[in-house]
Amino acid sequence: MSTTETVLRATAQSLAARVTDPEMPMLTLEDLGVLRDVEVDERGDVVVTITPTYSGCPAMATMRDDLVHTLRDNGFDRVRVKVSLDPAWSSDWITERGRAALTAHGISAPGPAPRGDGPVLLTLMPRRRLLSCPRCGSEHVDLTSEFGTTACKAIYRCAQCLEPFEHVKEI
């Protein structure tokens, strides 16, 4: 790879890395783990690869548009966004910086994603997560619902400060 290509790629990479999630704007797509790869091909086209968080995540089209915009605004005229489905996105891909940003904005960051082969075990009791209220830090929290305002979040309520808060689910 020539120096020019290396520089172009690094520039494109840093631009793409700045694009934020439309529903959780405190997170960049890089912090969310959605941005998988940025390449500049031999024709100078930027090829960005992203992985959807949930199959039906309606934010994907916006992410794609925002990536194209940001790169075009900065002189990369030809941008392609590719979707990569394999491996499937995992909440483990959210970076440390991303987790800190979530907490700072009152959203509880996910714990380790479940793993394992073989049949998925049925969980009849509410999922037990070791987490604390992002506002007051109390560990006395109750799950309100495993499904929240976006596909990726559950709703909790703090028993201490009584505030509701959202938790990014482990997948």
Partner: peptide
């Protein structure tokens, strides 16, 4: 809000 074109969900796959 979410772009009017949802495009091919398998774009680039």
């Amino acid at each position: 809000a979410f772009g009017t074109d949802f495009e091919d969900p398998l774009a680039g796959v």
